[in-house]
């Protein structure tokens, strides 16, 4: 199991989840993707969409940068 990082803080809906899906698609089952997202729409929608499409959302945490969160998703 490996851990990967993705920064979608500069993307807008729906490209935020498109980019997340593309990255998850490259991973093996059990791998972890840490997605860095901005507050607001992506923070609300990425965990919801990921869960809906069968991925395991492990945690949503604040980062040291104000307004930026990290979502841990398991494939």
């Amino acid at each position: 199991m490996a851990t990967y990082n993705l920064d979608i803080t500069k993307e807008h809906c729906p490209m935020t989840f498109v980019k997340t899906k593309i990255e998850l698609n490259k991973l093996q089952k059990g791998d972890i993707l840490n997605v860095k997202v901005a507050e607001g729409e992506p923070l609300e929608n990425i965990p919801k969409s990921a869960a809906e499409q069968g991925f395991n959302v492990l945690s949503v945490e604040k980062t040291e940068t104000p307004g930026i969160h990290s979502i841990k998703i398991e494939k």
Binding site: P14, M15, F17, V18, K21, I22, N25, E52, Q53, G54
Partner: peptide, 13 residues
């Protein structure tokens, strides 16, 4: 193709 990629049944594959 983002609107296809977003679909759970279609996706990247």
């Amino acid at each position: 193709y983002s609107r296809h990629i977003l679909l759970q049944d279609v996706g990247v594959e």
